[in-house]
Write a protein that binds this DNA or RNA. Sequence first.
DNA 1: CCATTATCCGAGTATTAGCTCGCGTTTCTC
DNA 2: GAGAAACGCGAGCTAATACTCGGATAATGG
Lengths: 215, 215
Amino acid sequence: MGSAESRGPRSVRSAQRRVPKQARSRELVDRILVAAGELFATRGYADTNTNLIAEQAGVSVGSLYQFFADKEEILAALQDKWTTRLGQALDERLRIDADIDLAETIDHVLDIHAALNRDPPGLLGFLLTTPVVVLTDGVTEAIRQRLAEMIAVLAPDIPAERRAVVAAMIVHISNGLYTVGLTAGATNPAVRAEVRRALLAYIVPVLGNPRGRVR
Amino acid sequence: MGSAESRGPRSVRSAQRRVPKQARSRELVDRILVAAGELFATRGYADTNTNLIAEQAGVSVGSLYQFFADKEEILAALQDKWTTRLGQALDERLRIDADIDLAETIDHVLDIHAALNRDPPGLLGFLLTTPVVVLTDGVTEAIRQRLAEMIAVLAPDIPAERRAVVAAMIVHISNGLYTVGLTAGATNPAVRAEVRRALLAYIVPVLGNPRGRVR
DNA sequence: CCATTATCCGAGTATTAGCTCGCGTTTCTC
DNA sequence: GAGAAACGCGAGCTAATACTCGGATAATGG
């Protein structure tokens, strides 16, 4: 929370924006998203203004507003992009069956987090701990869905409503990766180890201590 | 994240403000904090402007700025007030010794959270999930200190650095009370039950499964 | 080539919200 | 009860930021 404060924008209703048709405009949109990602991750959403995003992206504000109705839509686009990116990464590594090794699975997930959060440093953490923009379902929503399905396979007797809560809880504990270090001033490995512990301790009993080995 | 956006305030350096000397100004400050608390909890920090706080408190902006250098200082004062409030509530209920019943203790903590978060509904949750203002140590800092001490008593062999991480982790899991419900659309009791489970599952092994009964 | 469409630009506008200032009122002090 | 100090007020100033607009430039398609 820096020195910048809230003022209202001029737009009352976001007009429909153009959809990029040519390659150069698609690249322009990409550059904007990259710049916005870096800025959001380092200075936060409120302290990042659209002129700065345009400047950092090497574009004019005018161009920016041809493809994004407002600042919030940039955040929404970022959340969208990273939702699929995270989803794909999980698809590649995770296999879900009755013989799952929970500890190993958790390690994979933590690996994925660490890798993605390095690309633009801190961006994934920012998106995961930033309240969801209304325009999208948010990054965590898709993850929760996936988790709920996994739980359904591993522990079919858990009712659907509780599955949703458990999935949200797992997401929340995982987000400790991005909040615990800040407050405790701890190193990344230390935080990761603790998050791993917490996840494992929570998940194993919830899933009724299934056949999976737990080291 | 509403429609309001970030603009910078005029002040470059917050001038020193007056300290309330008379009873009426102390009440005025109180009314401001109450109003700000309600507004922050319902509309968020960014969407709450100082004119609105003054109006809701039944004071003029001018009066507000006689006791608070800027908007952020109002938030800092709130964090301060609630840090001590939460600390006192914990002091009253929690006894920490080798014979501690962890499940019971966790229930007490959850009770305290629920009670305090009801006074102005959602304010505690807001403060606990809002990044700390630089001016104060934040609400969670004091809690972490206390937790670290408790851990030191119950499990003296855990090194100090890890104690800090564990304490932060416990705080984080507890904060699930305020985030899990939002994303999962679950009822409060369901969320509370899951947070309780997660806390217990995490804490018991960390403390080396001490003599405390765990139901 | 030329018409059409897409793209790009960036100075300028509208709006908002943080914050000040000078003056009237209440409380305190002796 | 009189001077001083503390207090309260709210219209309005100012900085800052989201966003627009009209014109120049580049790609496209026939």
